[in-house]
Design a protein around this nucleic acid. Structure first.
Lengths: 339, 339
DNA sequence: GGGCGTTACTATAACGGTTTCGTGTTGACA
DNA sequence: TGTCAACACGAAACCGTTATAGTAACGCCC
């Protein structure tokens, strides 16, 4: 265990002052060529690396940004992580990925420890379900009050003023349902979440609007609102048993594969008897047989945009007063399930 | 933007010294009751929180541990994360999740920035594919040399001396293949990776041993080694076209669902014509239709064990010289694909 | 009433850097 | 030869906290 070498060690060894060493390594013009080279050579030889903690303490910034996501096994959030990391690393920032696990408490604890401990310079966050349900955003408002920049993406709230990145959920759903209508489907069911999930709500809205715009009548019996995501099988089965449907649009991946499973189990064929379009482009839909059509959210692009917004704010001296909301376009990915 | 309040601020305000404030907040017996209460009340009122960076600098430890995983959209790694977080948080540690994206370069950069920058106290890591291929472990050896504890899990190497947590990959595969044999399957194919992936290698080994122990003859034509995970469809299709098989064992999730897709596309039935058992208990297998049997790795338990090993080392003063390797038991999860 | 032990604090150094300001030496120039 | 700027470097303050080493003030005791 060789202990780490510090500026002081180098200074003592070369019989110069600490400031000279520091300046030499930063190519300060104050230092003569020979001294500078001597210091640099020595530093390289002993593999000197500055202690980031000391630097953070000195200039009150950490070059870390926290990315808080509700769940990890989710291709959408995974691609957001990639996007954020790409831009962050390019700008010399580290990304701390933190999981809220859809829990309000964990979200609050995460944010408080990171913010008050001074571990990060800013946050990028997608709200947990529980937070959206409780509508308690004090921890986020507190972060803003401390002067820490905050960017929200995907699952957002209008009760916190900050930069935001979203997709046009309503339009994505609208396009998906329109696609089904154009394929000649008449009885299109919707599997959605309860309304407090902002994105579920908006996607539901898109479904309604598409039906309306295409002059189709709306049948409330074709809409299923899932309370418990884990036990979505039961209500879906009930729908398929009781209603005559020829297409299903779901607001997420899991509902889509569950629908597929149930359709198969009652002996119907996809897409001949019933077509499916899901939401979010993950592996569950990609690797299903048959492949399931879906609305791609372009998570990596969201991540990149969010990271750029945050870093821009971190680097601007003055406190910019106006916040902006960027909307990322969605794309419909057509697969076998809705031909 | 209210700036953060420091010990000095409190000291100035209450007209005492900084040390008095610090000691009061830490309930030092040196401080009189009235002073202590006064300080505490003031601190609470102004919501004082110590600056962790300064504390880290002071006692040369960060209370952070880095968890480096190769990919994020993977239920196994996700459950490992949960396990690690559970134990870490319980012991007052933060977990920084870092992605290597199966890239050697990114793995090295991640480790170097975190280690030399002094951002974490220790590492828990599962090697990237590329690292295993290159067999270059200098970055890890360097970490050990710096006296930083390192725990490796799942994808490990015996070229680095440190604590390790693994599952008995060979035995897991052995049990899976034995299960197929017991179900009366005679021609069991294996879809595996190239040998440099340690776990793929071991699982392949278990397959061979199971055949051997059950007195079955081994047909090399039934073994497919996938080079490029992304394009595994082609070789799998070739196998099913050219060979008469009644069961397939795969060393991961993706291969299993791809096998399923191909079996369906040639009009055969699962499990009547061909049974499938995969490896790793993720959502891809869980939500496939039919559900695919698999070997569960108990990722959360691995994570917990790894975290405990790391923290134990962090908290022991003396440098323990002997390293241990813990083996986590696997479980066979039987689903419709191998009834 | 001088020495001694508490009590309740304060002063200071240290962690590892960065940065501002100061200073001794040199050379150019009037 | 005296003056002044340029050069090359060192001293010290600072970031926020903790730990160690003082140090006043007080009471007690022989």
């Amino acid at each position: 265990m060789k202990k780490k070498i510090t500026l002081k060690d180098i200074a003592k060894e070369l019989d110069v002052s600490v400031s000279t060493v520091s300046k030499s390594l930063k190519d300060s013009p104050e230092i003569g060529d020979d001294t500078r080279e001597k210091v640099k050579a020595f530093a390289k030889l002993y593999n000197y690396k500055p202690n980031n903690i000391a630097i953070s303490l000195k200039n009150r910034m950490t070059k870390n940004i926290a990315l808080i996501i509700p769940e990890i096994v989710n291709d959408f959030f995974a691609s957001v992580i990639h996007g954020v990391e790409e831009i962050a690393n390019k700008n010399g920032y580290n990304v701390l990925v933190c999981l809220s696990n859809e829990s309000f408490r964990k979200e609050v604890v995460n944010i408080e420890t990171l913010a008050t401990g001074g571990a990060v310079d800013g946050f990028i966050i997608s709200l947990s379900k529980e937070t959206q349900l409780k509508s308690d955003f004090n921890h986020l408002i507190e972060v803003e009050n401390q002067g820490m920049p905050l960017v929200m993406f995907d699952r957002i709230t209008d009760q916190v003023l900050c930069d935001k990145v979203i997709i046009d959920d309503a339009r994505g759903a609208y396009n998906a349902v329109s696609h089904l209508i154009e394929k000649g489907r008449k009885k299109i069911a919707l599997i959605t979440t309860v309304d407090y999930i902002s994105v579920g709500h908006l996607r539901t809205h898109g479904y309604f609007k598409a039906l309306l715009d295409h002059g189709m009548d709306f049948n409330p019996d074709l809409v299923v609102r899932i309370e418990e995501v884990e036990s979505c099988q039961e209500p879906i089965r009930k729908l398929l048993d009781s209603q005559e449907v020829d297409a299903v649009f779901t607001v997420n991946e899991l509902f889509a594969v569950t629908v597929m499973k149930e359709i198969k189990s009652i002996g119907k064929q996809i897409p001949k008897d019933i077509a499916i379009v899901g939401f979010s482009d993950g592996r569950l839909l990609q690797h299903a047989t048959p492949g399931i059509s879906t609305v791609s959210q372009h998570g990596d692009e969201m991540g990149r945009v969010a990271a750029r917004m945050l870093i821009k704010r971190l680097q601007s001296e003055k406190e910019e007063e106006s916040f902006s909301t960027r909307v990322i376009k969605t794309t419909l990915i057509e697969r076998e399930s809705s031909i």
